[in-house]
Design a protein around this nucleic acid. Structure first.
Lengths: 204, 204
DNA sequence: GTCTATACTCGGATAGAC
DNA sequence: GTCTATCCGAGTATAGAC
């Protein structure tokens, strides 16, 4: 169970690569995100990098998976939500953060639309990701409904679909017009639905 | 003004190509939509096809522009709306139609995320397209508000952004799970906002 | 206008030395 | 584990004949 020897070293290197990849992509965008460029950025040759991940598709899938993991730690934990773990506010915070890392938004957008093809190696990753995200949100909506903060007859499944659709779609428009404030629009949506919205700011 | 001679023939050929392209893409998806495949489908060689459009990017941009044109004729005209030209219902009908042409949805999704890079030849096309669409919808929202069907203090600009975000985002989730009924979710959204929704069915 | 043929570029994969 | 070197395929663009 406890990683040791060359095994733990492999894991460490992998994480180091993924960290560097996140930083690079966030800065330079998807355009320059080829295996070669990524290899250069982490100080490896192309084949040296691919040694750790196999194929380009696997590498990029891991980058996105790792990003989710980091984001989850940051925004779903005690520092991210409103303290009571309210998902709506956590989502607004996450979206606000995304506006700071345009390259990652681009990568996510491009890769998710490419992987929409059922034959794509990352297809299952995204399918499961959406399923999980919707499931989690539906659960939270049920909680809010029970607490009387949402209409009793509201369809939680449908609402969950809409929320994630909005996040993806806002990113698209934002990439074409960065003056669009994504977090602001999400908050606006919650206001329309909830009446009085949750407080989106958890710090400052 | 009246096209004649080789000029009108060129236009006719162009339209013929675009019609065939729409049909092909709708059927086989983006995966097989390379310049060569497209050329085969319309009975031309690759260079014969590119003769009419210049580059691959210009060709695909024209395909999407032509698609918009066809859709506008179909869904913004007297047969598409509710008769009173209500945009919300027209949108629901358009989205319902999109579910019938998965290949075109895939093409649109992939191409719009690729062109999000400011250096992409189709970047301006999509930027203007979003701007125009939002402008049109904002106008309609103002009309609805004046007619008392929307709250007087509703922010039309923000709502317009959200509606198109939802359309794009729903397509994404639908590509990963075709059991998601896009039109149904759009109608659900209007219901939450409008209270009683407009009738989405204009025929049948 | 359209064809055939070819050249060129890019990017991912692989072999084998160290 | 990492490198260098090579290969290979996909896909676009172009040259030149008809």
């Amino acid at each position: 169970m406890a990683p040791r020897g060359s095994y733990s070293k492999g894991i460490a290197k992998r994480t180091e690569i993924l960290d560097a990849a996140l930083e690079l992509v966030a800065r330079v965008g998807f355009r320059r995100t080829t295996v070669r460029e990524l290899a250069d950025a982490v100080g490896l040759s192309q084949s040296g990098l691919l040694h750790h991940f196999g194929t380009k598709e696997q590498l990029f899938t891991e980058i996105l998976r790792y990003r989710d993991e980091v984001d989850r730690r940051t925004f779903a934990g005690p520092a991210g939500g409103t303290g009571s773990g309210e998902l709506p506010a956590a989502i607004v915070n996450l979206v606000r953060h995304n506006a700071e890392v345009p390259g990652l938004v681009q990568l996510y957008s491009r890769y998710s639309s490419e992987a929409a093809d059922p034959g794509h190696p990352a297809h299952d990753f995204f399918r499961q990701r959406y399923e999980q995200a919707r499931g989690d949100l539906t659960e939270t909506i049920t909680r809010l409904r029970t607490a009387g903060r949402l209409p009793a007859d509201l369809d939680g499944d449908r609402l969950a679909v809409l929320v994630f659709a909005m996040i993806d779609g806002l990113q698209m428009q934002w990439m074409y017009d960065s003056s669009i404030d994504m977090a602001d629009h999400i908050a606006f949506f919650w206001e329309m639905i909830l009446g009085a919205g949750p407080e989106p700011h958890s710090r400052s």
